[in-house]
Amino acid sequence: MPLATIVFSLAAIWILMKGTGSAGDFFVGLLLAALIIRFLRKCYHQEKSFLRVGRIGRFVVSFTRELIVANIQVLRVVLSPRIRIRPGILAYRTRCRTPFGVTLLANSITLTPGTLSVDISEDSKTIFVHALDITHPDEVREGIRLGLEEPVIGAVE
């Protein structure tokens, strides 16, 4: 993300938190955001354009769909008279390359059907995923790849 985007979104969050929207408040927000960025500058690196609204929208849509499916699935497991799960931890090789991409993918995995990120390998290339049903590990992998990884890469990498 370009620094300007970060500064403006931080200022926007500031306005939302205050709940009032005067120009003075926004100015104060901009100042604070600039101050924060000044100290955290090393954490951000400049990169490509941020005009990816369409792809980000697609990510949000597929994420929301997965979230709803996830909850229905947890609901079914928890409320069934006998708990029938075949859990396990599998290693998932990710094609995300940026730290932000990997973070977003790992977080999305946790919030979506049957899967939970347990750890990320030292070289950030493998995500260890706990799944409630691991009868077919490759199906789980395919689900992550198509439902989450592709949209994440499209949106932020």
């Binding site: 979230l67 859990p87 706990h130």
Partner: peptide, 26 residues
């Protein structure tokens, strides 16, 4: 409520985290 039940009924830490994260955020 489902999240709470999940915490009691599921067998280990990892399965319980499924209930504790997904159902509570929802």
């Amino acid at each position: 409520l489902v999240a709470g039940l999940g915490l009691i009924r599921l067998p280990d830490v990892y399965s319980r985290m499924h209930a504790a994260t997904k159902a509570t955020t929802f």
